[in-house]
Amino acid sequence: MLLTIEGLTKRYPTGDLALDKVDLQVPAGQVMALIGPSGAGKSTLIRCVNRLVEPSAGRVQLDGVELTALGSAALRRARRRMGMIFQEYALVERLTVMENVLSGRLGYVGFWASWFRRFPRKDVEEAFRLLDRVGLAHMADKRADALSGGQRQRVGIVRALMQDPKLLLVDEPTASLDPKTSRQIMRLIVELCAERGLAAIINIHDVALAQQFARRIVGLRAGRIVFDGPAEELRAEALTDIYGEEDWSQTIRPAEEEDEAAEAAL
């Protein structure tokens, strides 16, 4: 098991219980979608994994290393194996595309090397290779804020991959994108995970997208897991459990589209 979460609980200082004894296991190479209403604790869950948010209780293990017990230096080393992709891209806007991509290597180089942008040649080479893979090699020296939304998210993906991660933590990757770009980005994430054998936890609002691109879906409601199963088993009753009463008949993917979508997921 690549990632094992046991009894993960997060209570914010305001008293809000964001996560309530969550147990979750993710095997290597599995792409998992995490769905749930706003405020269900999806963002908190993935941030508790790399401890951008400090969990209140519970244990998180990545590849046998107990992340929740690590000191700050060891935590920084462990974070290198967890690439993160963000909702609003979270690129450092005044840096160039290449600088943003190379920032994925910050955990591997010393301070002065990073200050003078003296990254190892093979890192820069890998950066160009990945930028070319997502079709942005010609944008390397553009400032990040000159890019379109879809392009920025591609740079965000490349930055995460530069870390040489085992696991991708993906927070609402398509929330700021149009439907077509959303699908392209999801497809890219899933393809790259397959190419590199990465596991991914993808927080996502859009149930149809989740079903189309992830084979396993976990539903979170008020900090508890209320659904965990293959995408095709996500039925109206499950959606009612996760989101509450609503007419779900148009949301759930018709059976005839499943083959095509499964192909895309590969």
Binding site: R77, R80, F86, A90, V92, R94, S103, S114, R159
Partner: peptide, 29 residues
Amino acid sequence: QASQAEAVRATGSSWFQLLAWGVLPQVRP
């Protein structure tokens, strides 16, 4: 923008790298 600094932190950067990469570019002008 906290998200930009958070993204730099998520890469496993040290505190000084966070300042140099996540904070300085935003306050430099």
